[in-house]
Amino acid sequence: MAANNTANATRLIVAPGTQAARTRRPFGRWFRETGWRHLVGLVVVVFCAFPLVYVLSASFNSSGTLLTANSLFSEISFANYAELFQDPNRPYGLWFINTLVIGVATSIGTVILCALAAYSFSRMRFRGRRGGLMGLVLVQMFPQMLAFVSIFLLMSAIGDIFPLLGLNSSIGLIMIYLGGALGVNTFLMYGFFNTVPAEIDEAAKIDGAGHARIFFTIILRLVAPILAIVGLLSFISVTGDFVIASVVLQDPAKQTLAIGLYQFVSQETAQNWGVFSAGALIAAVLPTALFLSLQRYIVGGLTAGSVK
C-alpha cells in the first residue's frame, strides 16, 4: 500500500512537467500571441534611446557641430565640459543654481497651495464651490501663449512699485509659475483627495481635531503619492521652461539653464552644439534622478484619483 502511494505521488509530480514539455508552444504561435509585444517594445526603446545616445556622443565631440558627430563616439574628449564652466560670459554654474532655486521653490509652493485648495474643495461645502471647480477646468483650456503679453505688462507695472516682484526678478517668476500651476494640479489633487474616506475626518472630529490638524497630521500622510507627483511634474516643467523665463528674466546673472544654454547655439553669439549637449546632459541629471527616485508614486499618483 505504501509503495502504491509513493508511485502515485511520483506520477503526480512528474506528469505536469512532462506534459508541459510535450505541449510547448511552437515559435510561430508564441510570436503571434506574445512575442510581437517584445518586438514592439524593443523598437520603442531604440526610438527613445537614440536621441539620448546621439546627444551624449555630441557632448564628447570637440568640433562643436552636429555634422561631424554622425559617427557615434568617434571622438572622446571632455573639452566641451571644461569649456562649459570656463566661459565668464556664460556662467553655467550660476544658471544651474538659479534653476535649482526656482524649481525647488516653485515645487514646494505648488504642493502646499494645491493641497490646501484641493482639501477645501474636497472636504468643505461652501457657496461657489462648484463654480470654482468648473473655473479651474475652463482656465486650462486656454493656451499659455495668450497670457505672455499680459504677463509682461503686469510684471512691468508691478516692478515700478515693487521692484522685487517685477521684471528681472526670480521671485516674480516663481509667482507666475505658482499661478499657472494652481489650476490643473488642484484638480488633480482634488480627485485624489476624494479617494480618502470621509469617515477618517469624522473620527478625528469626534476626538476634537479641527481642519488644520486633520489636514497636516492625517490627510497629507495618506495622499503622499500625489504630493510627490505634483512636486515632480512642477519641477520638471519649471526647469524646462524657456518662453516665460525669457520674458521675465533679462539679466544674464539671473537667467535659468533653458535661457542660458540657448546662447551656445543662437545665431547672434555662437553655434557650439558640443557645449550645448554637455550642458543639457548635466542639466538633465537632477530631473532624471528625481524621476527615478519617485517612479513608484507615478502610476498610483496619476491614476488613483481618476476613479472613486
Rank of each mutant, 00 (worst) to 15 (best):
S266Q: 14
H211W: 06
Q295N: 07
G172T: 01
Q295M: 15
V243I: 09
S169K: 04
V275K: 09
Y119L: 12
T110M: 06
W36K: 13
G183A: 11
R127P: 12
F96V: 11
L66R: 07
A270V: 11
G301I: 02
R25V: 15
S169Q: 13
L261K: 00
I97L: 14
L173E: 04
R32I: 11
L302C: 01
R129P: 10
G159H: 06
I13F: 10
I219R: 03
A212Q: 09
L154H: 03
N61P: 02
N194K: 15
I13Y: 10
L222G: 04
F162A: 15
Q263I: 08
F85S: 07
G191C: 02
K205R: 12
F142C: 13
T6F: 09
L249P: 01
G208Y: 05
I171L: 08
I214D: 05
T68V: 04
L116G: 06
M189Y: 03
E83K: 05
N80W: 11
T239N: 04
T65M: 14
S170H: 06
D241A: 05
T239R: 08
Y262Q: 02
V299D: 04
V104A: 11
E33I: 14
A105S: 15
L261G: 00
R32W: 15
L220C: 07
G300R: 05
R123T: 04
S71N: 11
M189H: 01
F31A: 02
L294T: 08
W273R: 01
P88E: 11
L12R: 15
W273Y: 15
V149I: 12
A304Q: 07
T34R: 14
I226A: 00
K254R: 11
D207E: 11
F216V: 10
G159M: 08
F193H: 09
L232S: 00
A228W: 00
L290Y: 02
Y190E: 03
L222E: 14
D201L: 13
S74D: 11
A157F: 05
I112N: 04
A253H: 07
G64L: 00
R130Y: 03
V14F: 04
G180R: 01
T10Y: 09
S293W: 09
A209Y: 07
F276R: 00
T186H: 00
F215W: 05
S234D: 08
Y297K: 04
G131N: 13
G179T: 06
T288W: 04
S74T: 12
P51I: 03
G109L: 10
A15K: 10
L153W: 14
S120H: 08
F73G: 07
V230F: 04
Q295A: 14
F152E: 05
Q267P: 07
R37N: 12
